[in-house]
Design a protein around this nucleic acid. Structure first.
Length: 300
DNA sequence: CGGTTTTGACCGGCGC
DNA sequence: GCGCCGGTCAAAACCG
C-alpha cells in the first residue's frame, strides 16, 4: 500500500488519464484506502483514492468473444478469438498469464504505441538468458510482461503477459450493454470520449470475423518486411493488442502514432483505443528483443 | 535536465 | 528454520 502511495502518477492531467480516472467508468472498481495525500484539500476525500482493479480477464475474454450485431442486439458466438489465436499462434494461458512464443526475426521491432517501462531484469537459474520485466506506463493499467529468450531455441522469444491493457480493453468491454449504440445520443464530454471508444467497439464484430485474415498494416510497419512485421507485431507489445486485429485499432489507418509514440510527454502511453498500433521498428522505445539480443551479444 | 534503463539490494514465497 | 529463487524496488547511470 505505501508503495502504491508513492505512485502519485495519478496526478497526471492528461486527457486520457482523466478519462481513466472517471469514477463512472464501469471498467474500474473503486475502492477506498487510506492515503496521506499531500493534504491539499483539508480532509474531505483526501484520504480516498482510486485503486485500479481493472477489468477482469474473464470479462475481457468474454468481450473478445465473437459477436455479431443483428441490428437489435449483439449475438455472442461460441468461438473465442483468444482460443483461436492460441491455436494459431501458440499462445498459451496459464493461470491468468498468457505466454507467447515467437520467432525472432532479427532486430525488427514494432511499437504499438503502448509504452512499457522496464523495471527489472534477472538472470534466471538454469537459463542462459536474462528475463526482463516490463510494466505498462499507463498509471491505471496493470499490464505487465516478462520477456526472455528461449533456452532451447535462441531464435524464440518467450513473452509472458500478465494483466491486460485496460485502455486497450475499453473497446471490447460491454460498455454499451446499458447503452445501445445510438449515434444521436447527447453525451457529456466525459462520455463523449467513451463514445469514441464505443465506435471502435462497433467495428469489433466485423473485424473479429476477419481476424483470421489479419495482415500487417504496411503503413504501420514500415521498415519491416511484412512477414517479419507480423511476428514482431504480434509479439512485442501487450497481449491483447497482439491478439486482436490491428484493424480494430486502426480503423481509419490514421498514422498519427508517431506523434503518440514519439511524444516526449510523461504520459504518452497509448490512447484507448490506440489510434494505431505499431509505430515501427525505429521506435526508440522498449524493445525486449533488442534488449535481450544486445545483452546476449554483449555477454557472449 | 528530464526521462529511461540498469543493476544490485531487498523481500516474500516455497521447498527441503 | 533456512536457504534458494523469482519478482520488485530504487538509486545511480545513461541518453537524447
Amino acid at each position: 500500500m505505501e508503495k502504491e502511495q508513492k505512485d502519485d502518477r495519478f496526478g497526471c492531467e492528461d486527457e486520457l488519464v482523466r478519462e481513466l480516472l472517471d469514477d463512472e467508468s464501469p471498467l474500474f472498481v473503486l475502492q477506498q484506502g487510506t492515503v496521506q495525500e499531500k493534504s491539499k484539500t483539508s480532509g474531505e476525500d483526501s484520504t480516498k483514492r482510486l485503486i485500479c482493479a481493472g477489468p477482469r480477464i474473464e470479462d475481457i475474454e468474454n468481450a473478445l468473444s465473437v459477436k455479431t450485431w443483428n441490428g437489435a442486439q449483439y449475438q455472442v458466438q461460441q468461438q473465442n478469438r483468444i482460443n483461436s489465436i492460441q491455436q494459431e499462434r501458440g499462445l498459451t494461458k496459464i493461470e491468468n498469464k498468457y505466454t507467447l512464443k515467437i520467432k525472432n526475426y532479427g532486430n525488427c521491432m514494432a511499437d504499438d504505441g503502448y509504452k512499457w517501462r522496464k523495471y527489472g531484469q534477472k538472470w534466471i537459474k538454469n537459463t542462459p538468458n536474462p528475463r526482463s520485466y516490463y510494466k505498462c506506463r499507463n498509471p491505471r493499467c496493470s499490464a505487465k510482461k516478462q520477456v526472455e529468450r528461449s533456452k532451447d531455441e535462441p531464435d524464440t522469444l518467450i513473452i509472458t503477459y500478465e494483466g491486460f491493457h485496460l485502455h486497450f480493453a475499453y473497446p471490447y468491454l460491454p460498455l454499451n450493454n446499458h447503452h445501445q449504440p445510438s449515434p444521436d445520443d447527447t453525451i457529456s464530454p466525459t462520455k463523449k470520449a467513451k463514445q469514441g471508444i464505443s465506435e471502435a467497439e462497433s467495428q469489433v464484430p466485423e473485424t473479429i470475423a476477419n481476424y483470421t485474415n489479419i495482415e500487417p498494416l504496411p503503413s504501420s510497419i514500415e521498415g519491416c518486411p511484412p512477414e517479419m512485421s507480423l511476428e514482431a507485431g504480434f509479439s512485442q507489445q501487450g497481449l491483447l493488442e497482439d491478439v486482436v486485429p490491428w484493424v480494430i485499432r486502426n480503423p481509419s489507418h490514421n498514422n498519427n502514432i508517431s506523434s503518440i509514440s514519439s511524444s516526449s510527454s510523461s504520459s504518452n502511453y497509448s490512447r484507448s483505443p490506440p489510434a494505431s498500433p505499431y509505430s515501427l521498428s525505429t521506435s526508440p522505445f522498449y524493445d525486449p528483443c533488442l534488449d535481450i539480443l544486445s545483452i546476449n551479444s554483449s555477454i557472449r
